[in-house]
């Protein structure tokens, strides 16, 4: 039996982790897997640290990913990659958007933003860092940075590019299909 795969999507509330989880949910369901995703709604969405769990396989019981069990960590922000890195398996992969968003504790001076996050994480894990925000701006819409990240992640998962594009088309708002497809392609090609 194929092992259940565990993916985590982490970021800052408002960055669009929910859309990413819908796309991952769509692609895994379409492929006939049993899938469970667990999301955070409500107050934590207001600029707080947010985490989404995705698990798929033949039969999935618990909807959460536990520490030391994640195959892939998709981080929309550097500090959040560091915060959740210990959820990864020994050879886990981190795909990180190379962006810094200061938490209020840093803004008020109560804490310092850690230096060299990507360098340090690379010592223990396979890290793929992408400046997706810059790429997205090149495409003309900073908001689609998360679809670029999906493109990067897709390169490391067992679904075809066409399958991904189909799901993106079905999931994103109709007006944004083209730009999201372009963003996915950019991430997929760059990865």
């Amino acid at each position: 039996m194929e092992q259940t795969k565990s993916i985590m999507i982490v970021g800052v509330g408002g960055q669009g982790t929910l859309l990413t989880s819908r796309i991952l949910g769509g692609i895994t369901t379409q492929a006939g897997y049993d899938v469970k995703l667990s999301e955070v709604h409500g107050m934590a969405q207001r600029g707080g640290s947010v985490v989404t769990f995705v698990r798929y396989g033949k039969e999935v019981a618990e909807p959460i990913v536990e520490e030391g069990c994640a195959d892939v960590l998709i981080a929309f922000e550097r500090l959040e990659a560091l915060r959740y890195a210990h959820f990864l398996k020994k050879d886990g992969v981190i795909i990180v958007n190379d962006q810094r968003i200061d938490p209020m504790t840093v803004v008020t001076g109560a804490a310092e933003y850690p230096e060299q996050i990507i360098e340090n994480l690379s010592k223990e894990y396979q890290v793929v860092a992408v400046d997706a925000m810059a790429e997205a701006k090149k495409l003309g819409n900073a908001k689609v940075f998360n679809t670029i990240i999906i493109g990067v992640a897709a390169k490391r998962m067992n679904f075809t590019k066409e399958e991904w594009l189909q799901v993106i088309e079905k999931t994103v708002p109709p007006k944004t299909v083209e730009i999201n497809k372009a963003a996915f392609e950019a991430g997929y090609a760059g990865a």
Partner: peptide
Amino acid sequence: AKVPARPPILC
């Protein structure tokens, strides 16, 4: 990792 907390904030 010991990292700064990121509680929710007003937008």
